[in-house]
Design a binder for these strands. Structure first.
Lengths: 213, 213
DNA sequence: CCTACCGATCGGTAGG
DNA sequence: CCTACCGATCGGTAGG
């Protein structure tokens, strides 16, 4: 048995990734020095460079980890299906939960969109676009059955819902004063986002359908 | 008459602000060096520091200019009123137009939210919150007249619409592959955002109102 | 995983 | 608005 100073001895690499994720999300990539990351982990700068050859390599790994988390989670949250109307709400809520589980995720995504649009574009095309098309197909199917408003643009609709989710997470601290409650802000914003998504998608119940002619 | 080298001689200060705005929006504050700004303007670093005492002072001025532009524009775009339903659409379109007029504006706002939430919070409280309350009051008035869905949370609703507008501007280059068209992306996203905002706000026409009992 | 160290660049100053 | 210059810090290397 070797004696050790730190509470968590082995997984230094993991801890570097954790702290880097947090600091990149909070201060941005350019706003974060590898020195600051090393300090947060409790090691020296060259030791960090031993684990990740460069600051850019570290960024790449942080993003890749986020993406692989996504790739696990998306199928899971899409399977949260019950009937058409509540499958919908549960998917939106699961999306919210995914980002709320670690508030840094949304910040990191938005920062990457701003800093490296081309890299994000490639990732989106490969890993996200197929899911958007899938959900879009489901929406179009339900539209054929008269459940969905006829003027919905399914793909643009999905993107707008995601933008509301990301925006709600990022703006959390900023928009608190806009909504009366103040402290109850996140819940209020999430509730309204679910309502907007629902009312903008579905035909009013008891209208149009209902085995008419 | 003095002879001059540059096309624009006098307004060096303005040109510094222009280039700083562009570079802060594109690369972030930490990702932009005053050297890069000076190069873009065509002057030396110490000359820039003569006009703006520090990099932080420059940032402050950039943000203040953006804000004062807002304070001029908001009343203008709120006055774009016709009847209740189209006043609404024209306000949303004017909001879109404001950000589309200079694509850097949206990026800059989102970056500030990420980098300095506290500073933005204070600005929002002072300069934006009153307008949100005003519009919210209008919505509540129209709700009393049965034009508006009864479960709308007016303030949260307004914030969500703004989040969609900002998100649409920022995600423009990234989400192009998500929507089939590709090139016609911005228009498609804006159209869907207007539709969502409208359908999520108003009661279906010919329902509930219509001078019934 | 560390000590010792490097060239380049950072924001900014002195002084004109 | 410029030349000349500064201390501090940047990401990263050498060598153990």
């Amino acid at each position: 048995m070797k004696s050790r100073k730190n509470a968590r001895p082995d997984n230094v690499k993991e801890r570097i990734l954790e702290e880097a994720t947090r600091l990149f999300a909070e201060n941005g990539f350019e706003g974060t020095t590898i020195q600051a990351i090393a300090d947060a982990v409790g090691i020296r700068k060259p030791s960090l460079i031993y684990h990740f050859a460069s600051k850019d390599a570290l960024r790449e790994q942080v993003i890749e980890d986020l993406l692989s988390h996504w790739k696990e989670e998306i199928p899971r949250l899409l399977m949260a299906a019950t009937d058409e109307r509540d499958r919908f709400a549960s998917v939106v809520m699961a999306l919210v939960a995914f980002f709320q589980a670690d508030r840094n995720r949304a910040r990191l995504v938005v920062r990457e969109i701003l800093d490296r649009p081309d890299a994000v574009r490639a990732m989106v095309k490969m890993h996200i676009a197929p899911w958007v098309r899938l959900i879009s197909d489901y929406i179009q199917l339900d539209r054929g059955r008269g459940l969905i408003r006829s003027d919905v643009d399914p793909q643009a609709y999905i993107v707008q819902v995601v933008l509301m989710v990301l925006g709600t997470m990022v703006a959390q601290e900023v928009a608190g004063d806009l909504v009366e409650g103040g402290e109850m802000f996140p819940g209020q914003m999430v509730a309204e986002l679910v309502r907007i998504s629902r009312d903008a998608l579905f035909v009013e119940p008891g209208r149009g359908t209902e085995g008419a002619p």
